[in-house]
Design a protein around this nucleic acid. Structure first.
Lengths: 244, 244
DNA sequence: ACTATAAACCTGTATATACAGCTTGTCATC
DNA sequence: GATGACAAGCTGTATATACAGGTTTATAGT
């Protein structure tokens, strides 16, 4: 306790007023000048407190007008989709990959549409079966832009995850996901060693780098063997940071 | 273009060096002093640029030591779980709710465990069937802490979503999710008008407010009628803001 | 009553300065 | 050679000040 930086004390105070309902949604939050007055801090310190709360989504600042309590109802909660290799490692499971395909392909019309490019563009296709403690849990069907990730054909997919490689090649700008529950196709069922029609969690993901679609992946998880989970903590209001 | 604020120009420059691979993971990023030198800006401006990139997850700053390129490989991508009422409204669908149950209950041992409280604690139970254009798509089974959300029993659940109400009552601190693909139970199948055993997307969610579990919900989506999707844009690097 | 102008207020950005505290490498001493 | 003191370099925080530009409210003039 004690000796928290001033800007945090200010943040904390405003946060408490929001939590307690003293500042309802869309209410006007104290202006920088009012904070300067009330707390005896400089305007830059007040500015920092309000800006950080704004960036955390609790306030909305409108230049010229004022600072207001954000409407957080429509924001939606976030779930982290993690790299399966990392996830399994953290939980103490063995992770292994069978590379069922890893080859150059030329974009069909359908593929080109997903990549927002012309048919015939060079792509790399990979089909991977991920095993947890030997048991198949995930079928990963992935197409990667050869232009954006030229080395993808050469990497050892049993050792480097596609995700890690793509992150290394370029900063990921945008991700689009679709999550569905689907019955296993005949092919997926055979590979995941489950019954045809058994519920599977299917994630379709497109990622962008440098303004272009870098990768399109379909991840089919065996529903009876896998669940995605995650915890999202607000923004570490109030409490101490985690251990290093 | 033109006349971007200085701190953004600095951010942009560093970002480009990261994207191009000029600054690999764990490499030392320019210090504030070096930026002052190179760009002719003040240290506070350099500080702002580096701090924002750090908050966006691209850099890691260690007091006393320096600023380094973050390892973004393990970070995981985020998917937004949105309020179904908002989501359907945005897509132009009609949204309706049947309230199948809305009652006070006393926590069983099992419920108490989920709420991390004692058995016998007062809860409110709601069972809601959400319809999209008349067709059932989601069965929401929710328990809410009566202590944290005293008015929950009295609200009109056909008009105010549980989520919106809980957000109004208190700031949401933490959310825990589990997403699975499961065969529909007999009960869920009957209510969602689907076949028993049909794939369903099941989201189990616990939310915390004021340090306590505020709500535990099980959301069962009809797999053949619903998918979750979302786009996460990096942090609006490079490009202009969206329209108001 | 209506309108145009001005004043008051607000946030956004930028600078110069200062001190605290941590980390790392160097150098002198034992 | 090991150790401890010191200096250099880095980030974190805080202040005072300044100007630009948008918004809102009040005011004066028509």
């Amino acid at each position: 306790m004690s000796a928290q930086p001033l800007y945090r004390q200010v943040k904390q105070h405003i946060l408490e007023r929001i939590e307690s309902g003293g500042l309802p949604i869309n209410a006007r939050a104290p202006s920088e000048a009012e904070i300067v007055e009330a707390f005896g801090v400089s305007r830059m310190t007040a500015n920092r407190a309000l800006n950080e709360l704004a960036k955390e989504g609790l306030l909305v600042r409108i230049a010229g007008s004022g600072t207001f309590v954000a409407d957080r109802r429509a924001r939606g909660e976030l779930v982290a989709l993690r790299d399966i290799a990392v996830e399994l490692a953290e939980r103490g499971h063995a992770h292994a990959v069978d590379v069922l395909a890893h080859e150059k392909v030329v974009a069909s019309r359908e593929m080109a549409a997903a990549f927002e490019t012309r048919a015939g563009a060079p792509l790399v296709h990979a089909l991977l079966l991920h095993r947890r403690d030997g048991e198949p849990v995930l079928l990963e069907d992935r197409l990667v832009s050869a232009a954006l990730a030229p080395g993808y054909l050469d990497i050892d997919l049993t050792r480097v995850s596609s995700y890690a490689y793509l992150m290394e090649v370029a900063v990921l700008q945008k991700v689009e996901h679709t999550i569905r529950a689907e019955p296993a196709s005949a092919d997926a069922a055979r590979r995941l060693k489950t019954a045809k029609g058994a519920p599977c969690l299917v994630v379709r993901r497109r990622t962008w780098s440098r303004g272009e679609v870098a990768s399109v992946a379909t991840l089919t998880y065996a529903g009876d063997r896998y669940e995605m989970s995650g915890v999202i903590a607000g923004e570490d209001h109030s409490s101490r940071r985690a251990h290093a």
